[in-house]
Amino acid sequence: MRGMKDQAIVCNIGHFDNEIQMEALDESDAVKTNIKPQVDKYTFPGGNEIFMLAEGRLVNLGCATGHPSFVMSNSFANQTLAQIDLWKNKGKYENKVYLLSKELDEEVARLHLEKIGAKLTVLSKEQADYIGVDVTGPFKPAHYRY
């Protein structure tokens, strides 16, 4: 950070605050000035100043309000289906990490299309047979990467 341009802005959007060495910065010879909540200026002895956002914690949730609702509806639909799945299958799963099925993944996407005015094309039986999928999906093999 010492070598950064004067007035550079530094932030993290990864989950934990260890991507930027905050403890080391706070113990360094840089002088910290609070500008407002979640915005601090650090001045290095040479005079260089940098701005640190949200104390190195995820900036989109620390300095703003996180993602918009529409995208979180996708994430949280998955969360809700996962909770239902865990409860329905309690006692059946091993202590391992599982993924939700591709059927549920496609279902979550489907639930969001109408709202934004997207209309799906429907496969004919002949087309479905030709590419080797069911007319109602899943439309991709497990190894497909999107």
Binding site: M1, R2, G3, M4, K5, Q7, A8, I9, V10, C11, N12, I13, G14, H15, F16, N18, E19, I20, Q21, A24, L25, S28, A30, V59
Partner: peptide, 22 residues
């Protein structure tokens, strides 16, 4: 990128990406 970058964003999920001295 030091001396060039104006805005730094870490997105790695890893540690020690940006340190007080490089």
């Amino acid at each position: 990128s030091l001396g060039i970058g104006d805005i730094y964003v870490t997105t790695t999920g890893n540690k020690d990406i940006i340190t007080p001295r490089s």
